[in-house]
Design a protein around this nucleic acid. Sequence first.
DNA 1: GCCAACGTTGGC
DNA 2: GCCAACGTTGGC
Length: 151
Amino acid sequence: MNYWLMKSEPDAFSIDDLKKVKTEPWDGIRNYQARNMMRDDMKKGDQIFFYHSNADEIGIVGIMKVVKEAYPDHTAINPKAKYYDPKSSPDNIRWQMVDVGFVKKFKRIITLDELRQHEKKLKDMALLRKGNRLSILPVTKQQWDYILTLA
DNA sequence: GCCAACGTTGGC
DNA sequence: GCCAACGTTGGC
């Protein structure tokens, strides 16, 4: 079982939105590294931290899981979609997505600030590394368990 | 709204 | 294959 962290701007899609709809196709990923992780390493049942970015309160807000493994992100070939990709075509969709399911919302948000305060315990957590803008990040079991104790 | 830190594109 | 220009992300 692998562990992940996925970012979303709560204005666009928040943990409360996920709680309401239960499952959601995680479309719009347009970064090769992130796509490759979804395609190659994300397995059904993997656990994911839901992270709110670009918000009043930035941080981890809950847990979701992979309910469907990677498949083509058809929004890439929809000219009206927000993340339309003119270089993709129906027989060559460059992007993939997974479906995620709601697991739980934390009673409180584990803010980025707080995570930084635990930097030593969360050694080399990808999220805390400088300049990291990937919207999907791997989390180690140790980091996962430690963050759960914070929550 | 600013800007640092990227990733991507495209001309050469 | 290099790299300048451009676009995007995301914290502040």
